[in-house]
Amino acid sequence: MFSPEGPTLRELAVQALSSVERGYDLLAPKFDHTPYRTPDRVLDAVASGLAPLGPFGRGLDLCCGTGAGVGVLARLCRDGVTGADFSAGMLSAARAHPVPAGPEVTWVRADARALPFGPVFDLVVSFGAFGHFLPRELPGLFGQVRSVLRPGGRFAFPVGAPPRPGSPAYWTLLGFDAAMRVRNALWRPPFVMYYRTFRLGDVGRELARAGFRTDLYALPGFGSRPDGSPRARLVVARRLP
């Protein structure tokens, strides 16, 4: 799963016993050499899915990590791109990467639950961060996203279809979440990272309550499930007036 440049087992254990913020500060220098970094094929699929809806003015990569999603926004936005994350270590790693061609890129340390922006963005994207938010936090999170979007602005993110019950992937994710719950029951500070709490039906309802109209687009490069449904979708939520 990890390249030779990635973290050691000991480093991962130290991260897992830290807070979310501290854990990512520690992991940041080697994060891009782990499976946790969003794959390029996902980034490219999202960029292709959003391209017909653009071009956009200003873009925000929410919970940007080391900045992989900023490259998507640089292809789609004309007036500027911002990456926001609450981990200083991840932002430091992001700043060390070559700046994508296109509009100016800025980096801001910020908690997604209390964003320090006005309604200045036309597109907000996020990749792989929602497992760090408990279901009860989604209304506040989506409210924050709405507050930084201009009317008609869009909030977009990819979601994968849940694994088939009984499959190896199903048991792997179930076991990970169970282990994380035990860890958080026994150890402080908590490390919030769950794979099975971000359910598309619940997400759609919370987006509607927050003032979004949501459309789903298949990401065809990931194929279909046996029932014909897509293995991956792009959620595009438009901010209503």
Score class of each variant (00 low, 15 high):
125 V>D: 00
126 S>A: 04
126 S>H: 01
127 F>E: 00
128 G>A: 01
129 A>D: 05
130 F>S: 03
137 E>N: 00
140 G>F: 09
141 L>C: 12
142 F>W: 04
142 F>L: 05
143 G>M: 10
144 Q>I: 10
147 S>A: 11
148 V>Q: 04
148 V>S: 07
149 L>C: 06
153 G>N: 08
155 F>D: 06
155 F>N: 07
158 P>F: 02
158 P>D: 06
159 V>T: 11
159 V>L: 15
161 A>G: 03
162 P>Q: 01
163 P>Q: 07
169 A>N: 00
170 Y>I: 03
171 W>Q: 10
171 W>S: 13
172 T>C: 06
174 L>Q: 13
174 L>S: 10
175 G>V: 07
178 A>N: 03
178 A>K: 08
179 A>I: 02
180 M>N: 07
181 R>P: 07
183 R>E: 04
184 N>Y: 10
188 R>E: 05
190 P>I: 01
192 V>W: 04
193 M>T: 00
195 Y>A: 12
197 T>V: 14
197 T>I: 10
198 F>Q: 04
199 R>Y: 02
199 R>C: 03
200 L>V: 04
201 G>E: 14
201 G>M: 08
203 V>Q: 04
204 G>L: 14
204 G>Q: 07
205 R>W: 09
205 R>N: 12
209 R>P: 13
209 R>Q: 13
209 R>D: 08
211 G>K: 12
211 G>W: 09
213 R>E: 15
213 R>C: 15
213 R>M: 11
215 D>Y: 09
215 D>Q: 15
220 P>C: 11
224 S>K: 15
224 S>E: 15
225 R>G: 04
227 D>W: 11
227 D>Y: 13
228 G>A: 06
229 S>R: 05
229 S>F: 01
230 P>A: 05
231 R>F: 03
232 A>N: 09
